[in-house]
Amino acid sequence: MRETGTAGFVGRWWVYLVVAVGGTWVFWLAAIAVGVRFDSAVGLVLLLVGLAVPGVAGVAFVYLVYDERGRSDFWNRVNDPRRIGRGWLVVILLVPLGVGVLAGLVDLLLGGPGPEWGDGVTEFGVNPLAILPALFFATLPPILEELGWRGYALDRLQLNWSAAGASSILGVVWALWHLPLFFVEGSFQHDEVGFATTGFWLFMAGIVALSFVFTWVYNNTERSVLGIVVLHGWVNFTAELVVVPDFAYYGLWFVLAGLIVAIWGTETMTAADDVPHPPARSVR
């Protein structure tokens, strides 16, 4: 059933994306304007509040756009591990690890240094707290982000676009959402990558490739937000533990995205003819 009135306008996919990106940028651009670092107390608050916007907005839009059936469906996708299934849980756990290991081997074959342990591993024996950044990136950001990106936005996009089209749009927006981080000291993007470097372009393009992989998993796990949170967290965690050159790492995510489209097609990225959608609003 076509949504009308306030719910119809608010439910347009671009409205959420404008709110999510704009809301985050308010706090992150404020950090740039006042010149604080993200590893300072004030900077950390601005980082975390901005980071929370996509998820908080996602939950808010669920309650604005959907009726009780849609809201129950949302929380079931967040809480119910049975949607994932054992087979797809194996996929979720093996794919990020496999990409990291294979990227290291590719780099070795090309004459590079190959994989290296991240700081959290090398410093753990001396300072166990060194693992905290890896644990942070594996837990809080995936939860805060995915309640919105996949929990709400991907469904709205797939009402009007193919799985591949939705992945492209969401991937580009997701990449641009990170942009202010390249201008704030104390962030990984500023300190380790840098703006307009080769690493910058690989990072931004790699997020788009990841968006395809996330859609593939999402559509094959009955739209499980929990599965995507685990996948997002495991991608972050493995990348923190095993460091490989960006070209090989992001290149393999592109290869995987291409294989997914080639095997499962652009429309659904599944064996089904149609992607699962949220329940329509009840007619009264």
Rank of each mutant, 00 (worst) to 15 (best):
residue 252 L to C: 03
residue 223 R to I: 01
residue 242 V to G: 06
residue 99 V to W: 05
residue 263 I to L: 13
residue 133 P to H: 11
residue 267 E to A: 11
residue 90 V to F: 12
residue 9 F to M: 05
residue 72 S to W: 00
residue 232 H to F: 01
residue 73 D to Q: 08
residue 190 H to V: 03
residue 248 A to Q: 12
residue 164 A to M: 05
residue 78 V to D: 11
residue 241 L to E: 10
residue 192 E to Y: 13
residue 105 L to Q: 07
residue 200 F to S: 07
residue 188 F to D: 06
residue 165 G to F: 04
residue 85 G to Q: 07
residue 53 V to K: 10
residue 32 I to F: 11
residue 181 L to T: 11
residue 271 A to C: 03
residue 205 A to P: 03
residue 272 A to Q: 14
residue 124 F to M: 09
residue 252 L to R: 04
residue 173 V to N: 07
residue 138 A to D: 04
residue 280 A to N: 10
residue 182 F to K: 01
residue 225 V to Y: 03
residue 218 Y to R: 01
residue 235 V to R: 06
residue 49 V to R: 11
residue 102 L to V: 15
residue 91 V to G: 06
residue 134 A to C: 09
residue 52 A to S: 15
residue 140 L to E: 03
residue 81 P to H: 06
residue 32 I to Q: 11
residue 29 L to P: 04
residue 221 T to L: 07
residue 130 A to K: 08
residue 229 V to N: 00
residue 47 L to A: 07
residue 120 G to N: 01
residue 182 F to A: 02
residue 57 A to G: 02
residue 110 L to D: 04
residue 66 Y to N: 09
residue 142 P to Y: 13
residue 121 V to S: 05
residue 194 G to V: 05
residue 245 P to K: 09
residue 90 V to Q: 06
residue 5 G to D: 11
residue 185 E to K: 12
residue 137 F to L: 13
residue 190 H to T: 14
residue 9 F to W: 15
residue 42 V to P: 04
residue 82 R to I: 00
residue 273 D to V: 03
residue 73 D to T: 10
residue 234 W to A: 00
residue 232 H to E: 09
residue 61 F to G: 00
residue 138 A to I: 08
residue 146 E to W: 04
residue 267 E to D: 12
residue 133 P to R: 00
residue 51 L to K: 04
residue 110 L to N: 14
residue 243 V to E: 06
residue 3 E to R: 14
residue 259 L to G: 07
residue 27 F to M: 01
residue 207 I to F: 09
residue 267 E to C: 02
residue 209 A to V: 14
residue 272 A to S: 15
residue 212 F to H: 07
residue 250 Y to S: 00
residue 204 M to T: 01
residue 16 Y to R: 04
residue 171 G to R: 01
residue 199 G to D: 12
residue 121 V to I: 15
residue 15 V to H: 08
residue 157 L to W: 05
residue 96 P to L: 11
residue 257 A to F: 05
residue 216 W to C: 03
residue 209 A to C: 08
residue 72 S to N: 08
residue 46 L to H: 05
residue 178 H to C: 06
residue 255 V to A: 15
